[in-house]
Design a binder for these strands. Structure first.
Length: 304
DNA sequence: GTCCAGGGATGTG
DNA sequence: CACATCCATGGA
């Protein structure tokens, strides 16, 4: 029997584990975590190695219960390991954001009012790794979500690392360094467009050589400046930039206004027979000021 | 086979 | 900065 470490994380209101689990369950083709019996299993990178972690609700639903299964290949201090896992989960589930102001603001808005009732306790699930977040943005451009998951799976299974535990395989997203070494023809078997292959490799090289970092974006000084830095990179337009700032940098006012899913959600909720115009979206979203990222994330939930 | 989709790039004003 | 046009490929 391998050593197992478990601990709990207190959660701030509003939080409901089941809502977040629902979100994470939306794609059967997801390859970076698995859901079994209301627990989420995934590999967690630790110091050049990886452990398998699972996350669930504790018995009375007042906390998140985390378990680390098996041991990393290299000896790691247990307390340090727990700290890393806790930090990861806090970031993943956005536990350090006080959502009360968002909920207060949402009450007064017809669209968001419905959203916070329907998805009470949902957190903006993050993509902490910058390379993964940008890659997911690039992969997801211009294609249906289902196909995007297929492409991601091919990329992960071709170039990611995996850990085995009790007969299951857990994959980690490829490191930028691993993609930086590739040429376009290496990625072509995955069947994404040549452009996307170029974009992924180029971004991987920027991250691998240190000229693009999360810290740099965090310190950019404003959403606008961070967006400008990202958009200066080939393959990253306004939609991808805001998507990354929302899911990875967690900027609350990041707003992928061109997102077709957002448009469809608005059309659906407003009972419109056409997509809203940009002017209509800007009018609606003026009431979400400062919380555009959460507003978008909640409205997306109406689509699945 | 035809057409559209949903983003980014590029070029023009 | 806004706007138009082209792109490449999957899906209906």
């Amino acid at each position: 029997m391998k050593h197992m470490l478990s601990f709990q994380i207190d959660v701030p209101e509003p939080f409901r584990f089941s809502e977040n689990l629902n979100y994470l369950s939306r794609s059967p083709n997801e390859c970076l975590y698995q859901i079994r019996s209301d627990r989420i299993y995934r590999a967690l990178p630790v110091q050049g190695s990886a452990v398998v972690m699972d996350v669930g609700a504790d018995a009375d639903g007042q906390a998140i219960a985390v378990r680390l299964l098996g041991d990393p290949d290299s000896p790691v201090d247990q307390l340090q390991l727990q700290a890393q896992a806790e930090a990861y989960v806090r970031e993943w589930f956005d536990l350090d954001t006080d959502l009360a102001p968002f909920y207060e603001q949402a009450e007064a808005d017809p669209l968001l009012g419905k959203a916070i009732k329907a998805f009470y306790g949902l957190r903006l699930i993050g993509i902490p790794d910058l390379f993964e977040a940008i890659s997911w943005g690039i992969i997801g451009q211009q294609i249906h979500l289902g196909y995007a998951y297929t492409l991601k799976r091919r990329l992960v299974e071709a170039y990611g690392h995996s850990v085995e535990h009790e007969g299951n395989t857990y994959w980690l997203f490829p490191k930028a360094e691993d993609i930086a070494r590739l040429e376009v023809q290496d990625l072509q078997p995955l069947r994404m467009t040549v452009k996307k292959c170029e974009y992924l490799i180029h971004t991987a090289r920027l991250i691998a050589d240190g000229s693009l970092t999360k810290q740099q974006l965090m310190n950019a000084g404003s959403l606008k400046l961070a967006e400008k830095r990202l958009v200066s990179i080939r393959g990253i337009g306004p939609w991808t930039a805001h998507y990354v700032l929302m899911r990875c940098l967690r900027m609350p006012d990041a707003f992928p206004i061109d997102d077709v899913g957002l448009h469809n959600a608005i059309r659906h909720l407003q009972g419109m027979d056409r997509k809203p115009t940009k002017a209509e979206i800007m009018e609606l979203s003026s009431r979400w000021s400062g919380w555009e990222a959460y507003a978008t994330f909640y409205l997306w939930r109406f689509l699945y």
